[in-house]
Write a protein that binds this DNA or RNA. Sequence first.
RNA 1: CGGGAUGUAGCGCAGCCCGGUAGCGCGCUUCGUUCGGGACGAAGAGGCCGCAGGUUCGAAUCCUGUCAUCCCGACCA
Length: 492
Amino acid sequence: MSKEITSRDKDYSQWYNDLVLKGGLADYSAVRGCMVIKPYGYALWENMRDVLDRMFKDTGHVNAYFPLFVPRTFLEKEEGHAEGFAKECAVVTHYRLKADPNNKGKLMVDPDSKLEEELIVRPTSEAIIWNAYRDWINSYRDLPLLINQWANVVRWEMRTRLFLRTTEFLWQEGHTAHATAEEALEETVKMLGVYADFVENYMAVPVIKGVKTPNERFAGAVDTYCIEALMQDGKALQAGTSHFLGQNFAKAFDVKYLNRDNQQEYVWATSWGMSTRLIGALIMAHGDDQGLIMPPRIAPIQVVIVPIYKGDEQKKLIDTKANELVQQLKAVGIRVKYDDSDNARPGWKFAEYELKGVPVRLALGARDLEKNVVEIARRDTKEKASVSLDGLASHIGALLEDFQKNMFEKARAYRDTHITEVNSWEEFKEVLNGKAGFISAHWDGTGETEEKIKQETKATIRCIPLNGKEETGTCVYSGKPSQQRVLFALSY
RNA sequence: CGGGAUGUAGCGCAGCCCGGUAGCGCGCUUCGUUCGGGACGAAGAGGCCGCAGGUUCGAAUCCUGUCAUCCCGACCA
């Protein structure tokens, strides 16, 4: 069968690609490193977006939109920022094409259309946004400024992977300005909390909140907070970041406000972002050898109904009942699809919706109609049961809740058993090459040690956990004193 | 940008070593039988063999170049 997928244990990369491609989420595109997000994948993103957008609005944010193009001189203004992004920018240098006189039917860049100043396709929007904020902020009464943008960005990465790292990707980026450092820091941590809430409670992926080391910090930030998730191959994935930008961008773009004492002060900033990469996290955290598994709260299809019939007469009866069920389920807000297409038989449909990760499947046949029941199968445990059609909607509602909880608990159990405390360098390497996952170890706090560990093992410090307890110890690599354990892992 | 591999029908592939005018499975179309875990039979449609040169009577096959994609690194969310 063409829809067979590679086993997770046999070839993890191939398994992941199979889930993305055959699960119908996305496809490779004609453009280098870019992908086409197909309707099923986009529906998932829309559901994620809707929930997040509501959360942002509930915390006082509003949406706006800024240009795709960033003039080179804007990007240059914040030094660390410029340095960090310079090597992965798509640059617009001309604005016109013309017919190639030496090559009939071909186009060439018109050399007369060269731009005075190059335009950078935004890799992120701090520069263009802070240039606007300069004009928007005059007084303490204009603060805080809490804005979010849903956009696409482009980062010209060496190597791309579906969802995890594509040349162009979709995301949201929040950019806020505050009167004080305390307030900005509070916002940074608050939004990290929003992300953790979203990823854990909607995507059913457990995360660890933490702070990045200076080496791993966002270009231009004073501090980078992150949530880290663990994939089923033992590698970590950064699922979202929230940056405390200090006054770096305010100074670079000269954004000052007049405080209550009539004095000019630079504002304090944050930025935070979450992208379609999360879909990659979802796939890798939950998928199995049968395909995707969608958390009910954001699943594009929560329930699929598959009719089983012989002949048109049976089909008609089942159609009637199925459409009733669809109405009942829709009435209580359940996203349901009745697949009555006749080009695939039941067995094929079962496999197909398992591959797509639809949480609940109802199989409705003549036998069921007689007994006023339906066969209900759940994707996570693969359990099947025959349940009464009476009160089906509330039964399924409860089932979806249980499904959501079960997914999270399963992922958390995996994650928890893959955080290993190690106290020696030998042990560190042994765990990393064996069961992998997060390694909780003491670190002397220096970038040199961090760098050496990375070179020797490829493991990086994913974060310094926010809830970590103080504990004196010695660095697992250098033997120097340390105050807290940090989390190491191989990562995406 | 380094290492490896692959470009042949919508998808997955065989054929290439040893040149002779393209094949298999799935899918698609039509008809019939089917339908509770990826149905079966019959008849069909569909291919500048990635692109450009070269060798040859003749190239999917040999040679040169080139482009693209995937995997593994370095880089990153």
